Computed example of a mutant assay.
Amino acid sequence: MSRTYLDYNATAPLLPEAGAAMLQAMEIAGNPSSVHAEGRAAKAAVERARAQVAAGVGCKPQEVVFTGGATEAAQVLAGGAVVDPTAHDALWAHNAPEGRIYAMGLANSETGVISEVPQERPCELLLLDVTQAVGRIPFAFGWSGADLAILSAHKLGGPKGVGALIVREGLDIAPLLKGGGQEMGRRSGTENVIGIAGFGAAVEVAQKRLEAGDWARVAQVRDKLEAMVEEAAPEAIFVGQEASDGPGRLPNTSCFALPGWKGETQVMSMDLAGFAISAGSACSSGKVKESRVLRAMGFDEPTARSAIRVSLGPDTTEEDIARFAKSWAAAYRKHQARVA
Rank of each mutant, 00 (worst) to 15 (best):
M1S: 13
T4C: 13
T4N: 03
T4D: 01
Y5P: 09
L6N: 05
D7H: 08
D7Y: 07
D7W: 05
N9A: 14
N9E: 11
G19C: 00
Q24Y: 00
E27H: 08
E27Y: 03
I28Y: 08
A41P: 00
A42R: 11
Q52I: 02
A55C: 04
V57G: 07
C59F: 10
P61D: 05
G68Y: 05
G69L: 08
E72R: 00
A73G: 15
A74M: 05
A74F: 10
A74V: 06
Q75I: 00
V83E: 09
T86A: 14
T86K: 11
L91K: 09
P97W: 06
R100H: 06
R100M: 10
I101E: 01
Y102S: 01
A103V: 12
M104F: 05
L106Y: 13
N108T: 04
S109F: 02
V113G: 06
C123G: 05
L125I: 04
L128P: 06
R136G: 03
P138L: 09
A140Y: 02
W143Q: 13
W143N: 13
G145P: 06
L148Y: 10
S152T: 15
A153P: 05
H154E: 15
L156M: 13
G157I: 00
P159D: 11
P159Y: 02
V162K: 12
R168T: 08
D172H: 15
A174Q: 14
P175H: 05
K178N: 08
K178F: 00
G179M: 10
G181L: 10
M184S: 14
M184Y: 06
G185C: 10
R187Q: 05
V193A: 02
I196H: 01
A197D: 08
A197G: 04
G200K: 06
Q207A: 14
R209V: 00
A212D: 11
A216T: 12
V218H: 02
A219Q: 12
K224D: 03
L225A: 03
E230D: 07
P234G: 06
V239G: 03
G240T: 04
G246A: 15
R249P: 02
L250E: 10
S254F: 03
F256N: 09
A257F: 07
L258P: 07
L258C: 07
W261L: 13
G263H: 12
E264D: 15
T265V: 13
Q266G: 13
S269E: 15
V288N: 14
R292L: 10
R292A: 15
L294S: 12
F299V: 02
R305H: 14
S306G: 09
S306Q: 08
A307M: 13
R309S: 09
S311G: 08
G313D: 02
P314K: 05
E318A: 04
D320L: 03
I321Q: 01
A322P: 05
R323K: 07
A325W: 07
K326H: 13
K326S: 14
Q336S: 04
